[in-house]
Nucleic acid binder design. Structure first.
Lengths: 336, 336
DNA sequence: CTGAAAGCGCTTACAG
DNA sequence: CTGAAAGCGCTTACAG
């Protein structure tokens, strides 16, 4: 029931409270004898410094606020785990805020987050409003957007080179001899959804072929299934480029439900390469986002901003690569 | 760059700093006039109370430490999201610690967690050592184990009635006319793994049938696949009861890889009923853990312990139910 | 190297 | 209802 304080340790060790503090402060300056006495007393009493008190005076909480949504999409738990490990390794910890998908509420969340005096904020899969951007700036709390871009120059962000990537995916489909290509895009309210769609259109226009269809799957399984049923009705596409793997699994399930075989009757390509994409039942051809490197970059960015105080926002776009599996035909149609 | 403090608000509002504090304290006692002036000044300045400072003096951080592992198993992200939402709704937030699966390191983690003066700890899918149990007890920090039991009476926990549930699953398989039933158990170092295995054995013994095989899948996909390949070699089982869905998906993939059809050539039943189990490609018959109720119970328990100071540990075991899908044969063999 | 003292931003008795 | 004051558990100049 008792919280041991540095004062109690000091008393037992026969030194001042400041001495105890110094022993537990990395950049210490204490004699070997003092260190020994203090460590002994601390061990006897089971003393551990109160991180909150330290945070108050130092102004550094060693807490990073993480805003995350879409946890049903395997990409995010994976990223969360990597993020947490990377941060833990540097002595930071994550205060997690699960976000509603609507924008206003995210603002409220971030304000709550800032009340905890977090040293930085990583916002995954959410956008932030401009007023909020200003508040964060003003409070001097660095913000890094993860897997989401930001038009305003306020924040740093790290994403894949979504537009280029989507273009590459589309070209792959075109090269494979597909000509009736549909795109089930990610939520158009998100930069990733818009960028990937733009990349799709880039490639189609460059080859002068019309999209078979283009709809917004909202990054939602049920919506993606409904879109797919629609698409399968009547004249069918011969390929569907889906805005992320999570929706692509829904597309695959729906295609099979209709008695068709993915990769044979219709090609499907996703985006992310979550672990499940490699599982035999899905065997999804997809564009791999370099999640390891993305996490590393996000952590480095936020650390740099925390340490430097101010760093001009950086926009990082990393390259991934297409992973070929069974859900999409590779060879040209004529060579079949 | 500036953190606004209550003193600054007080000055602008022309009241004392205590008055400002009262206005922002729920159980306040301030005149309407004071409230008005203070709120105005606070709004002008963009003031928000420093949660850390409040935590220091009140001794309540409104932070719950969550220890979690196995994030690749969809059960945990789902639980995490529910937990976070439930806690957020009550004004608490989660400081997350991703756990290595080995026991010693968990202890270190929990100590780190306690340094943040968390008001309570929810440990999902991990066990805690006895010495640590004592420390937590001693510090007066309530601990609730989630989806994992604890022999020692030290902590509260909430789980499914794993043994009974596993027994029911096994009986279902037996009733379905299966006689060569294998069990790929969860990690035997975990209570859930042991309890489910015990339930499996209960049912088998009651019917006087020998297990076809019993192995430890370690809650790991790769291990489960290896076990399944082994099982498929030579005389095959006609059913496999798998310790959780995450492994069951691996089993299903492996069975198909061998050219067999789950639910036809061999029945498979999982445990959890994660969302993916319902997806057409897996269509997994499984025992549904009542995750909503489990989360609710865990949150209520921890809240009760925080508010009451001391509450004797409670062991909650909730009932779920078997969800029938296509991966396991239902009718008796003879009626086929 | 070391101790006394101030102060981080709050809450909470204590008087009035 | 309200203000002055003490104190939560630390870190960090400041003297010595």
């Amino acid at each position: 029931m008792s919280k041991i304080t540095s004062a109690q340790v000091a008393k037992r060790a026969g030194v001042s409270q400041s001495a105890v503090s110094r022993v537990f402060t990395p950049g210490a300056s204490a004699s070997a004898k003092t260190v020994k006495k203090v460590r002994q007393a601390a061990a006897d009493l089971g003393y551990r410094p109160n991180v909150l008190a330290r945070a108050m005076v130092s102004g550094k909480s060693r807490i990073i606020g993480l805003v995350v949504a879409y946890l049903e999409n395997q990409f995010y738990p994976v990223a969360l785990e990597l993020l947490s490990n990377a941060l833990q390794a540097r002595g930071y910890h994550i205060l997690i805020f699960t976000a509603p998908n609507s924008a206003d509420d995210v603002d409220v969340l971030i304000e709550d987050l800032m009340d905890y005096q977090v040293d930085g904020i990583i916002a995954a899969s959410v956008s932030m409003s401009s007023p909020l951007a200003e508040r964060a700036q003003h409070s001097g709390v660095p913000v890094v957007l993860f897997n989401r871009g930001q038009e305003s120059g306020a924040f740093s962000h790290v994403t894949s080179a979504n537009r280029t990537a989507a273009r590459a995916v589309t070209e792959f489909l075109l090269d494979g001899g597909h000509s009736r290509i549909a795109h089930i895009a990610g939520w158009q309210g998100s930069s990733t959804g818009r960028d990937r769609q733009a990349g799709f259109l880039d490639a189609m226009q460059a080859r002068d072929v019309q999209p078979f269809a283009m709809v917004d799957g909202m990054y939602d399984r049920a919506v993606a299934m409904a879109c797919t049923r629609q698409l399968l009705n009547g004249a069918r596409p011969d390929a569907i480029f889906v805005g992320n793997d999570h929706m692509a699994f829904a597309v695959l399930d729906t295609i099979r439900e209709a008695g068709l075989t993915p990769g044979q009757d219709i090609s499907v390509v996703g985006f992310d390469d979550v672990p499940m994409a490699a599982w035999a039942s899905y065997d999804l051809t997809t564009y791999r986002q370099p999640v390891n490197r993305m996490v590393e970059a996000a952590v480095n960015l936020i650390m740099a901003q925390i340490e430097a105080g101010e760093v001009s926002p950086q926009k990082l776009e990393l390259d991934g690569r297409l992973i070929l599996r069974g859900s999409a035909r590779i060879e040209k149609a004529e060579t079949k």
